[in-house]
């Protein structure tokens, strides 16, 4: 999950690096995407880990930018031990030598995990999903497909979308009638990309772009938008706070967030211990209870309460028609598609 608030996280990073430099070396620095997601991680992973092992954790947040990590690794002055990553960044960073190749024997049996959650340099923390969320008070009727997101007559009002090509183009194609299994095939062609942007043109004046995961619930609750793409966990947190927000699961796009260890991390041994701890089914279960993201440990899935399970991206009814984010595609195409998106958005 991408962004939180850039400036705030910059400050936090500066503070924590300062803190990490002056405090005892044994503290493990863990960087995540912040917000309610980080709060859930603190409850499920950080606090119990410190209690069990005595190792203190310095928790901080960032926006997913790889520049800082690259700069730290190249300068051989790494202050981060464990980093939460989205899949394309993990794959790219792994190839470019930013992340340690993980030794699974220090973490847990491979068979316990969803196979696609494991990669050379990363191990899945949870499954999250980008869904269509809407304000039930502001909308007459119930949207049932991405075509409804584009239907300005049936559902008048502004739409929120994540600023960037990733997911935005996929949803445009889905709304244009492309089948989920053909989305990335279509997007791989020039005509497919043009088709996606043409579809986006239809609602462009009505789009309010967001960058941080915490924004869509706010925009929806404040009535600034009537529908928005959103991370399912953030919407669930807002529901808990009593906001009347709803999720449409049809054709959601899911992906993993993973743990990675930057090359040259100062406390590698403790970093491994932490990842192993956070990958245990009982801890992942607590996490899913805090924020409805699905566990990557298969044993964890079995432990989850039925009420919670229905809200997870991994629930069978939510998985139906869902689209797995194609990491390989985005590793390859993010450069040119993001450029084209920027050009399109700025016009």
């Amino acid at each position: 999950m991408n962004p939180f608030f850039a400036k705030k996280s910059l400050l936090m990073v500066a503070l924590t690096t300062l803190f990490a430099a002056t405090s005892a070396q044994a503290d493990v620095t863990i960087i995540s995407f912040g917000g309610t997601n980080q709060k859930a991680q603190a409850k499920a992973f950080y606090e119990p880990f410190t209690k069990a092992s005595g190792v203190k954790i310095v928790a901080s947040e960032y926006n997913g930018e790889q520049a800082k990590i690259k700069a730290m690794v190249e300068a051989k002055n790494v202050s981060w031990d464990v980093v939460e990553l989205e899949s394309p960044e993990l794959a790219r960073g792994c190839e470019e030598g930013l992340y340690e190749k993980l030794d699974m024997s220090k973490i847990g049996p491979k068979a316990d995990f969803i196979p696609s959650a494991l990669s050379e340099c990363g191990i899945g923390i949870f499954v999250w999903s980008t869904v269509l969320a809407y304000n039930a008070d502001a909308l007459k009727g119930t949207p049932t497909s991405w075509a409804d997101f584009w239907d300005l007559k049936k559902f008048p009002g502004k739409r929120g979308m994540r600023k960037g090509a990733k997911f935005t183009l996929e949803f445009a194609l889905l709304a244009d009638g492309v089948k989920p299994e053909d989305v990335y095939k279509t997007l791989g062609t020039k005509a497919g990309v043009t088709r996606a942007f043409k579809k986006l043109d239809e609602i462009k004046p009505y789009i309010q772009w967001w960058e941080a995961g915490a924004q869509p619930p706010q925009l929806l609750a404040a009535g600034d938008v009537v529908m928005s793409t959103a991370y399912n966990g953030r919407i669930a947190s807002a529901q808990k706070e009593g906001k009347k927000l709803k999720i449409m699961w049809a054709n959601n796009i899911y992906d993993f967030d993973s743990w990675g260890i930057p090359v040259g991390a100062p406390n590698k041994a403790d970093a491994y211990k932490f990842i192993a701890f956070a990958s245990k089914p009982e801890n992942q279960k607590v996490f899913s209870g805090e924020i409805p993201y699905g566990p990557t440990n298969v044993k964890g899935t079995a432990m989850i309460d039925k009420a919670v399970a229905a809200d997870l991206p991994t629930a069978p009814q939510n998985m139906k028609g869902a689209l797995a984010s194609n990491t390989q595609f985005w590793v390859e195409h993010s450069e040119d598609l993001e450029q084209r998106f920027n050009a399109w958005a700025a016009k």
Partner: peptide, 9 residues
């Protein structure tokens, strides 16, 4: 034209 951006910027 659909990729051009920087002159405008």
């Amino acid at each position: 034209p659909e990729e051009a951006i920087f002159v405008d910027v």
